[in-house]
Write a protein that binds this DNA or RNA. Structure first.
Lengths: 203, 203
DNA sequence: CTACTTTGTTGTCAATGACTACATTGCCTT
DNA sequence: AAGGCAATGTAGTCATTGACAACAAAGTAG
């Protein structure tokens, strides 16, 4: 038996890492601070030194998730190919992330977060849509898609892909593969943006 | 003091009704069987006679939610106006329902449901997309939107509006009103589906 | 060496979901 | 009308959990 040092040394990271695994296994509701403490061989009161309460730990998880996802989205938007290809790539990156970490995505977009964390969380979560917005502006300047408020268009794209991501993550897409859904959705969105300026026609 | 009869008389419905209110006030996680029992003046063991466990009650809530929503969607799809107007109406009905019952919507699309309930839940939940699919077929037969697999197109529409609904329900749409988001989304989708159909340009 | 901070331990409390044994009611059959 | 019986409600119990407080150990700065 090796003697455990009194200090864990990196308890915070260990808890986050283990929590990330746990929520994908049993969901957020199945997450227990005490079980988490047991998993990393620490007493049940130790996590409190790093996370004020359970929600604080979940907030940290969500933030880490957004940062990870933003990296993938940014990489996709900087990929090779024309604008349309890159647009599809971003969509794929988003939905793929959702499928790979379904429970984490749910946590990320969960409505209930501590007020203090929510500010940082919100701004980090908005990074993704800003990438899409930049691509749309780029496409408009290139004359590929029609003029129109880029913010609104980006929001429509985000909203639609968000639906695809959540449904894919929740396994609510029965007859279609995730790939097909993303392709079909991005195709329709792109066709809609190249066709005209829908938001301006509303009347 | 009025004497309470030994039998509640309609405990199941009372529990569901009160639970519906509760989840909108404090979320699903704030739902407690014991508190629910207290609210309807019944002992803490009584709910077990109607719902095997907490999840069974939640399943029943989800089913009731879908049935209610399906009614609104069907009504919207049968509203006055041309196909495009009806399409937008259906989208609005969906998102409006989401905004009116955000917590319920979360429950409805929650991944974790009892295996037995999930079958009925799934089929009931699919009714909405079938309405959209019927409208798309109607539009294709009228030559308004381009040919294409109606099931795929309906899925794209559903997926996109689902994203709008969830984001609206979760108050993740900062700078835009719900109305604007629905209009912009349905506009883009419709434009994407009418792309390449010369007859559709005039409207 | 001593005081202070950080980190982890231990003990405790109320709330909760689930379970069991039992009591009451009212319908159904005879 | 009487007895049986399922449905419904009551009361008590148990393990688990999140939160909290008091204490202990390890590092750190003066």
């Amino acid at each position: 038996m090796t003697v455990q040092p009194y200090h864990h040394g990196n308890l915070r990271e260990a808890l986050l890492e283990r929590a990330m695994e746990t929520i994908e296994e049993v969901g957020v509701d199945g997450l227990s601070l005490r079980q988490l403490a047991r998993d990393v061989n620490v007493s049940h009161g130790a996590p409190a030194k790093h996370f004020r309460d359970k929600q604080a730990l979940i907030d940290a998880l969500a933030l880490a998730g957004f940062e990870s996802m933003n990296g993938l989205i940014r990489a996709a938007s900087a990929s090779d190919g024309d604008l349309r290809d890159r647009f599809v790539s971003v969509g794929k990156a988003y939905v793929d992330f959702a499928v790979a970490h379904p429970a984490l995505l749910t946590v990320m977009y969960s409505t209930k977060h501590h007020p203090d964390s929510s500010t940082e969380l919100r701004s980090t979560g908005e990074q993704g849509i800003l990438v899409a917005q930049a691509m749309i502006i780029e496409a408009q300047e290139a004359g590929i898609i029609a003029a129109g408020d880029p913010q609104t268009l980006a929001m429509v794209c985000f909203v639609s892909l968000h639906g695809a991501a959540l449904l894919a993550a929740g396994k609510h897409l029965d007859g279609a593969t995730v790939e097909d859904v993303v392709i079909a959705t991005t195709d329709t969105l792109w066709a809609g943006m190249t066709a005209g300026v829908p938001a301006a026609q509303a009347s």
